[in-house]
Amino acid sequence: MPAQTISPSLARTLLRATGWCGLGLIAIAVALSDFLARAPAGAVGMGAMLEAPSADHPFGTDLLGRDLLSETLHGLSVTTIHALIAALVAIILGGLAGAVAARLPRPLGQSARGIIGVFAAVPALLIAIIIIGLSSRGLAPLAAGLAAAPLAFVRAFDRVDTQSSHAYYARASGIAAATLLRRDLIYEFRDTLASVAARALAAVTIILSTVSFLGFGATPPARDLGLMIAAAKTTYLSAWWTASFPAVALIALIFFARMAAGLEEGERP
């Protein structure tokens, strides 16, 4: 079918479906990572040092002779699990809390919006680094979720506040604020939950992998993709495969999450 004949809604549905299919494949790879990997995580000396991709080692080997296919699968697994935890934190403390705050009495809601808005003015990456610096690197998923939450809170708050003409009529007809909040959570938040979750997953994956790259995230032997790429900095200029395959896996995870969120239309779920 020529591209011109595809309706916008069909194109959007197709893109979202592609995103969810991609995330499904990643979920399968993560679930089966121990089975699919040829070596346990961090197993050194599986091949020669910095061996180029070959039949024995499809993704090549790194400086310590680790099989990069196995390492990438293990790294993807760690990144995805951490990102899911972080996304859950961001959704609850960000999107959900923002939607609830917007239905609080106006002075209270606006005060919460103002306070959280200050945190939203600090780059999420910096917030995550500070939280990890104050606690421990083991709490990186929680830190990434907390760092992404302020922006999600502000967006959810503004979205409910600006698009809720029904709230005006509900208040005018005497419907209680608690009833209105329950209605919003059941209908509006539920309908956008998939998009919100996918968007949060993409955002926290970027934060998590970046803090790991900067040395504040995962700790060996549980290496995530950010840490793998950071370790490949010393070799990738002469051995491209050491950073490329983990980077492709990371980009695929973010790409499919963004597609599933439907951001191609400039939406703000």
């Binding site: 592609t18 992998s209 970046t210 790429i229 980009i251 191609e264």
Partner: peptide
């Protein structure tokens, strides 16, 4: 619509990957 997948792909690249 035509460029949507491509823009999504480019914007999915974390900054440190782009830098490298």
């Amino acid at each position: 619509r035509a460029a949507a997948p491509m823009t999504q792909l480019v914007t999915a690249v974390p900054v440190f990957c782009a830098g490298l």
